[in-house]
């Protein structure tokens, strides 16, 4: 059985459909990229899984537990952590308070201290600036903090929405290195929205292409980059047409 199962879901904002008839399975320990043009419904898919957007059709399951209809905080408790687009850290709280926010539910106080120490070991800069207001960190540091915060709820699945948004390429490399290391160390499952399919190919994993709220292509990220499916997703042509055109 797959870790995360998304069965035939639809998400609408008013009458505007954002996601349609979408079915997706993610296996335990897998790394899946969701790519596609603006407005393809990538973020809406993540929001639907995390409970921030309501689905109008279909169901979503984690380890066979139904997520559909649950509030976001309940879904977070079941083991899904989301790093929202634009990072959304709590700017006026200190770095350490940001990390502790997600631990209010946990009764294992000692493990919380160990986890915080581990995050400081993974991200030394956060340890140095633990008493600083999170809003005063640089963009890359804020992204690290958002990932650190997501780890504090002991998730099985972490969803990251556009980790490269507004960051220098070198910093993006660091962010992905960190994510991959964490995945190996903890056996996490990752679902990442990434506009750059080149980046996805370099990091490696499965890639799902979306367009107009639907999945239009799927495969190994490295194979997908030079395939026409990409062009089709972005420009709306079917692969056959592209072939005849070239």
């Amino acid at each position: 059985m797959s870790k995360l199962g998304v069965f035939d879901i639809a998400v609408r904002y008013g009458k505007v459909p954002a996601v349609n008839d979408l079915t997706l399975h993610v296996d335990e320990g897998e790394r899946v990229f969701v790519s596609g043009p603006n407005g393809a419904g990538k973020s809406s898919l993540l929001k639907a899984i995390s409970g921030a957007a309501a689905t109008s059709h279909g169901r979503i399951e984690l380890d066979g537990d139904l997520l559909t209809g649950r509030p976001p905080e309940a879904i977070a408790r079941l083991g899904i952590s989301m790093v929202p687009e634009g990072r959304d850290i709590f700017g006026s709280l200190t770095v350490e308070e940001n990390l502790r926010v997600g631990t209010g539910l946990r009764r294992d106080a000692e493990a919380v201290e160990e986890d915080i120490a581990e995050i400081y070991a993974n991200f030394p800069i956060l340890g140095e600036r633990r008493a600083a207001a999170a809003g005063a960190l640089s963009g890359g540091q804020q992204q690290m903090l958002a990932i650190g915060r997501a780890l504090m709820t002991n998730p099985k699945l972490i969803m990251v929405d556009e980790p490269s948004l507004g960051l220098a390429p070198k910093i993006v490399d660091q962010v992905y290195d960190t994510l991959c290391t964490l995945q190996e160390d903890r056996g996490l499952t990752l679902l990442i929205v990434e506009q750059s399919s080149l980046r996805a190919a370099r990091v490696g994993g499965r890639m799902v292409l979306m367009r107009g709220g639907r999945i239009v292509g799927e495969g190994n990220a490295a194979d997908m980059v030079d395939r026409d499916a990409l062009a089709a997703a972005y420009f709306g042509q079917s692969p056959e047409k592209t072939e005849t055109a070239t």
């Binding site: 921030a52 977070a76 989301m82 929202p84 959304d88 709590f90 709280l93």
Partner: peptide, 24 residues
């Protein structure tokens, strides 16, 4: 307290706070 911290987090960003498991 843990509750006060959680509440201040919702003041900053409701969506991110709920995604961190906070019952606002």
């Amino acid at each position: 307290s843990a509750s006060g911290l959680a509440l201040r987090a919702t003041r900053e960003d409701e969506v991110a706070a709920r995604a961190s498991g906070i019952n606002m």
